[in-house]
Lab assay of single mutants.
Amino acid sequence: GAPPLPPYSAGGREVTMKKGDILTLLNSTNKDWWKVEVNDRQGFVPAAYVKKLDSGTGKELVLALYDYQEK
């Protein structure tokens, strides 16, 4: 199953993602919540729920390892 959710501390809205989604990583300075862009929406997802990909394009991409439903 998915890892436990860290307390929400990102101070911005969250976004929903599905397992297998490829998201653009915008900011990973917060260790628990990373800012991503998905379907032209920006928001935060739990860092433990995604994995960085080596895209080779200069853009940082992450793979959704679990479904996440915004609150």
Rank of each mutant, 00 (worst) to 15 (best):
N27R: 06
K35Q: 15
A47Q: 04
L25P: 01
P7H: 13
N27W: 06
V15W: 06
Q42P: 05
D32K: 05
V45D: 01
G11L: 11
P46G: 02
K52C: 06
M17L: 07
P6Y: 03
T57W: 12
G58C: 05
A10F: 08
T29I: 10
A64T: 04
G11Q: 10
K19A: 13
M17Y: 03
D54S: 13
D40R: 10
G12Q: 07
G58R: 08
D67K: 04
Y8M: 14
E70S: 12
L26N: 03
Y68F: 15
G56V: 13
L65P: 00
Q69W: 11
E14W: 06
D67F: 03
I22Y: 05
T24G: 07
E14S: 14
G43S: 04
D21G: 03
K19I: 06
V36A: 02
N30M: 07
E14I: 15
P7C: 10
S28M: 11
S55K: 11
I22E: 03
V50Y: 00
P6F: 03
A64K: 01
D40P: 03
L5K: 09
S55N: 15
V62D: 00
Y8K: 05
V36H: 00
K31N: 10
T24V: 12
N39G: 15
G12F: 10
N39I: 08
L61A: 08
G43T: 03
Y49A: 05
P4L: 11
W33Q: 01
D67I: 01
V15R: 02
S55F: 12
L23P: 01
P46N: 01
G56P: 15
A47S: 14
V36S: 00
L63P: 00
T57F: 15
G58N: 12
V15Y: 05
K52Y: 11
G1Y: 10
T24H: 10
T16V: 05
G43N: 02
V38G: 08
T24F: 11
T24S: 14
K35I: 14
L63T: 07
P46H: 01
D67S: 07
V36R: 00
R41A: 10
E37A: 11
V45M: 00
K71F: 13
P3W: 05
L25H: 01
D21V: 04
R13F: 14
D32G: 08
K51D: 05
L25R: 00
L23I: 06
N30E: 07
E70A: 14
E37Q: 13
Y49T: 03
Y49H: 03
T29S: 14
E37W: 06
K59N: 10
V38E: 04
A10Q: 09
T57E: 15
N30F: 05
G56D: 14
K31Y: 09
D67M: 02
P7S: 14
L61E: 11
W34Q: 01
V45W: 01
N30W: 07
N27S: 13
D40V: 07
K59G: 12
I22G: 00
L26V: 11
G58S: 12
N27H: 06
V45K: 01
A48C: 06
A47G: 05
L23V: 06
E37Y: 04
P3C: 05
T57K: 06
Y49P: 01
A48K: 08
S55A: 13
R13V: 15
K35P: 02
V50S: 01
W33C: 03
P4S: 10
G20M: 02
G56L: 13
E37D: 08
A2F: 09
P3H: 05
I22K: 04
D40A: 07
V62T: 02
D54N: 12
A47W: 01
K51W: 06
V45S: 00
D67G: 04
S55W: 13
F44D: 02
L5R: 10
Y68I: 03
K18V: 11
L65T: 04
S9Y: 08
I22R: 04
D32L: 10
E14G: 11
N30S: 11
T57Q: 14
N30H: 06
L53M: 07
G1N: 14
L53H: 07
Q42I: 15
K18L: 09
V50F: 05
A47E: 03
V38F: 15
K19W: 03
K71G: 15
E70T: 15
S28V: 07
G43C: 04
K35W: 15
Y8W: 09
W34I: 05
V38P: 00
R13N: 14
A10G: 11
T24W: 12
F44N: 04
L63G: 02
G11E: 12
N30Q: 06
N39K: 10
G1W: 10
K31L: 12
S9D: 10
D21L: 04
L53V: 12
P7Q: 14
Y8E: 10
Y8P: 06
V50E: 00
V62C: 08
D32I: 08
G56A: 15
A48G: 07
V36I: 08
K52M: 13
D21N: 07
L61I: 09
Y68A: 01
W33H: 01
Y68Q: 01
W33F: 04
M17P: 00
G11W: 04
S55L: 10
I22L: 09
E60M: 13
A64F: 01
K18Q: 09
G56N: 13
V15T: 07
N27G: 05
R41H: 10
Y68V: 02
G56S: 13
K31S: 12
K31V: 12
L26E: 02
L65F: 03
Y66K: 05
T16C: 07
G20H: 04
D54R: 08
D54W: 12
A47V: 04
L26Q: 03
L25G: 00
L26P: 00
P4F: 06
E70N: 12
D32Q: 07
Q42T: 13
N39Q: 11
N39F: 08
P7G: 08
T29E: 13
T57D: 14
K51N: 05
K35A: 08
D21F: 04
R13G: 15
L26R: 03
W33M: 02
R13K: 14
D40M: 08
F44T: 02
L5H: 06
A47T: 04
V15E: 03
